[in-house]
Design a protein around this nucleic acid. Structure first.
Lengths: 371, 371
DNA sequence: GAGGGTGACGCAATCGATTGCACGTATCAT
DNA sequence: ATGATACGTGCAATCGATTGCGTCACCCTC
């Protein structure tokens, strides 16, 4: 029996005898020695895919030894040899944006169930940081990527696709349709919200659109225009304003510009909840009441928007499920690289709260708010 | 010149010529070949710590070649040999709890500045998941851990300490004081909040304490009692109730039990913002007005508590800085393992908003709220 | 009984970087 | 001229697991 080892220590992990001593983890060689086989055989015995290559009894013996030593394969050594890592890269703009943690949890829960995990990086939407992060992750042999940072034009993603990296977009898409993605069905969400407003009696509706470099921004804007047409409502360009970012401040600026331009409206469809909150701020500052004077609808159903004054009506997006679906899709792609790109849309659901009400009629008589 | 390689390919990374082809990253051997030196020499030339061992001109040449090939050291191979990984493990209960993302960002920003990164895992406060996650991270040779899940009694942490793993606790501590930690100065935060209430004129104050298995829960409760004593206020045991979790629901149950028991109070110090929101819910449900009938103070200054009705007065905890400090401390411990455990307290700051006001006087005449 | 097939296992290369050791050469003192 | 010293570099082992290939024993068949 040949061995590369000088010694063998019992009490491999966390033994009380080794107080304040760092204990060496047992290696495959240790297992092989104990079982009286070559480490190649031990490797095959412990790998379900190759177990049939070794005698049943031997395999059992190896397995028992591995068990008793508490052997854990070293993922680093494995990665070095196999160029796989049981991990994927998750690229998000900013963890402190409440949109993304549920997505990350959805992804992690699905990956975790089969022993994979996600390597999370924040890019703050900085392409340089993003490229560096991706490079670093590739160095660590991540097997694929999930991007939540997609812009409509996104050279880095083009590059990854052309290099054949398994890749799934979540929450946002690029202009290309040949990249797998899991997003909310924005058109459906907008349609629901608009139907709600129309049914309440609104006909003069405006839209605070998000940045037009992102799929969510353009899709919601497009769906808004479509909805105006569908309901036969006035749809002049002055009824939409494009906000420069998904922030409260941008929302306030956006609604202010509409008010200052004298646009006549009784309801606002905001591109997301933060823009809606910006509306709240600006409306309150100007003494305009929500929902009495203006109804507001948001998008996302962020935490705590049900506690606002008034509670925000919003199209809830199933972020956790978005993440979970994206993870499942990426895993499928890893197993079957030939699968074609797929686009998955998950349905939003309109959560009606206190920020939407029937409009006051022109003469001020106003229908009462139903409840 | 000996080479292990069969071939050498130019256009190493992301070249337009290799459309749809996975390109091999250049290795140290490639660099060495090109520079006409042994890979050992190339390794030394590229490592700042060993660069002095090689001739200056040779080192420059190697560096230029490495640059031109776009050589990136393979972190996996490096980790295998050195048992270091330039990464640390971050153990948190749940990423979707808004407390933790800022901590994580603080950590990542500090680590990132020196090429380290954090491996984030969620445990949902499940010791089994936690142990599995730690085991998995150790397998990946993380160099240390930051725990945000510390319970007062925490066997896993004891084990890690006894094994000599570099370890820093953030936000929460254990009962042991010989583990490095970075937390908010809860006593100071409570003292500020209590002083604020007393200055407003409150004398009958109650406390919704958090779970007593966590340092934050006990520290804030202890500080509350101390403050009552300091201000000469009534401090019977009936003035505190211990909530089973840091949740809205638990907060509602807690305040309900005080009201039902007929405890007489004009102000509530909640153990954190979620408990405070639970108060809001329950008080509103019973027609008790905040702040007119009861003032409420929270803890943390979570996102959006400034948008509540009324906006919540709360002790802001600098979570980002907590994370950043913890990361710095861990890095120090990695460089100088002999450094003793340190306890760092960061000061909270009281953010006064609309949920606190002078109490109505007993006969109902009530001082007007100052502004 | 020689040839061929099969199952079980070992050998050794390999993944890519790091590092202790030793060798060769240049320099300098004696 | 010889020995000591320092410096620069190469050799090869090493980290731990995986895997193509070869070998050996055994059994079957003609």
């Amino acid at each position: 029996m040949s061995s590369r080892r000088r010694e063998y220590r019992s009490h491999p992990v966390g033994s009380a005898h080794n107080y304040h001593a760092v204990v060496r983890q047992p290696t495959l060689q240790d297992v092989a020695d104990r079982a009286g086989v070559h480490r190649a055989t031990a490797s095959r015995a412990l790998n379900p895919a190759t177990r049939h290559l070794v005698n049943g009894e031997t395999a059992d013996r190896v397995e028992r030894v591995a068990q008793s030593l508490g052997y854990r394969p070293n993922p680093i050594a494995r990665s070095l040899k196999t160029a796989r890592s049981s991990s994927i890269g998750l690229v998000i703009p900013d963890l402190t944006n409440p949109l993304f943690p549920p997505i990350a949890r959805g992804i992690e829960d699905v990956l975790g169930s089969i022993g994979y995990n996600a390597w999370i990086v924040n890019t703050d939407n900085d392409p340089v940081r993003e490229a560096a992060a991706v490079e670093s992750m590739r160095g660590r042999s991540v097997e694929g990527f999930i991007f939540a940072t997609a812009r409509l034009a996104h050279p880095l993603l083009d590059q990854l696709v052309s290099q054949g990296s398994p890749l799934v977009l979540v929450n946002r898409r690029t202009a290309r349709s040949d990249i797998s993605s899991v997003t909310a069905d924005d058109a459906a969400g907008v349609a629901q919200a608009m139907r709600h407003l129309v049914e309440l009696g609104h006909s003069r509706i405006v839209h605070l659109a998000g940045p037009q470099g992102l799929s969510t921004g353009v899709n919601r804007l497009r769906a808004f225009r479509q909805a105006l047409t569908d309901h036969g409502l006035p749809s002049g360009a002055e009824r939409t304003v494009i906000c420069q970012s998904w922030t409260e401040a941008a929302g306030a600026v956006g609604i202010a510009s509409l008010l200052d331009a004298g646009v006549d409206f009784t309801a606002v469809l905001a591109g997301n909840d933060l823009l809606a909150v910006g509306c709240y701020n600006e409306l309150a500052a100007r003494g305009v009441s929500c929902p009495d004077d203006v109804s507001v609808v948001g998008f996302n159903d962020m935490p705590f928007v049900d506690k606002l004054n008034p509670p925000l009506t919003t199209a809830r997006i199933p972020h956790y499920e978005l993440g979970a679906e994206a993870a499942r899709m990426l895993l499928e792609d890893l197993r079957m690289p030939q699968r074609p790109p797929r686009t998955v849309l998950l349905p939003p659901s309109l959560i009606v709260r206190g920020s939407t009400a029937p409009p006051k009629t022109r003469n001020g008589a106003g229908r009462r708010r139903s409840r």
